[in-house]
Nucleic acid binder design. Structure first.
Length: 231
DNA sequence: ACGAGGATGCTCT
DNA sequence: GAGCATCCTCGTG
């Protein structure tokens, strides 16, 4: 049922163009994606994170891991983004205030917020510090610790139902505001590079569940993957 | 299968 | 008081 394990692959989803301009130290020896990978244009990061592994080590030592199959991009120039025009809406001078100010912070930190009063949604901050951007992780494919994910969700759920939505995956991986505004530098929660994903197997489409800037095709998902969120 | 509606809490007007 | 980057259940076909 799980896909092939991670090989010594290049960065997930980088085009030849991006490979050429890629800084040298974006991963560590354990393939953990380091902060400067995220200090790039948000759309590239959203596309590039497809195939990456989201790895969660629980307090009792259990490791949960999952492969990212769906993301969305949110940028400073984007009415659907929490940080949209926050710079100009804030009073003169830093620091920025209000919901979304963290999106202007250090790339590679988590932005976790409560949606509809019930669901935690997990993002990674992008762009260089001082610029606003984030990638929402919308769906992942379980790899390790599936039974523990089922226990965290609800016994009896199918594998597909464990993590095929942004609120579901945070529940399955025990991610909440403990991780908010904290760097993803492990060991409790990290991202690792995964296999390379060809452009031919990536679909971009309008983002889900928003009311503004609906026309932008800033949602990215793996084609024909049963773990993506929408039908 | 599909759609409607409720749950639930935080931010901003 | 409205508006959410959602999920689940319970109706109806």
């Amino acid at each position: 049922m799980p896909h092939a394990p991670c090989q010594n692959a290049p960065h997930p989803g980088l085009t030849a163009y991006n490979m050429k301009s890629m800084p040298m130290n974006r991963t560590t020896a354990d393939n953990h994606i380091s902060a400067d990978y995220f200090a790039r244009p948000t759309l590239e990061v959203a596309r590039g994170l497809l195939g990456a592994r989201l790895v969660r080590r629980l307090e009792d030592g259990t490791t949960l891991s999952a492969r990212i199959v769906e993301t969305e991009a949110y940028t400073e120039d984007d009415p659907a983004c929490h940080g949209w025009r926050l710079r100009e809406r804030s009073s003169d001078g830093t620091p920025l205030e209000g919901k979304g100010a963290e999106l202007y912070g250090r790339p590679g930190t988590a932005y976790v917020y409560l949606c509809y009063g019930i669901h935690w949604l997990f993002n990674v901050v992008t762009e260089p510090e001082g610029s606003c951007g984030a990638v929402l992780v919308r769906a992942v494919e379980p790899v390790d610790g599936i039974e523990r994910m089922r226990a965290l969700r609800s016994d009896g759920l199918s594998d597909r139902n464990l993590t095929n939505g942004p609120g579901k995956l945070t529940q399955a991986l025990d991610i909440d505001d403990r991780f908010h505004d904290r760097p993803l530098d492990g060991p409790a929660l990290i991202l690792r590079q995964g296999e390379r994903i060809d452009d031919a197997s990536v679909v971009s489409s309008p983002r889900i569940g928003i009311s503004r800037a609906k026309e932008r095709k800033w949602r990215f998902h793996m084609a024909e993957n049963r773990y993506v969120s929408a039908r």
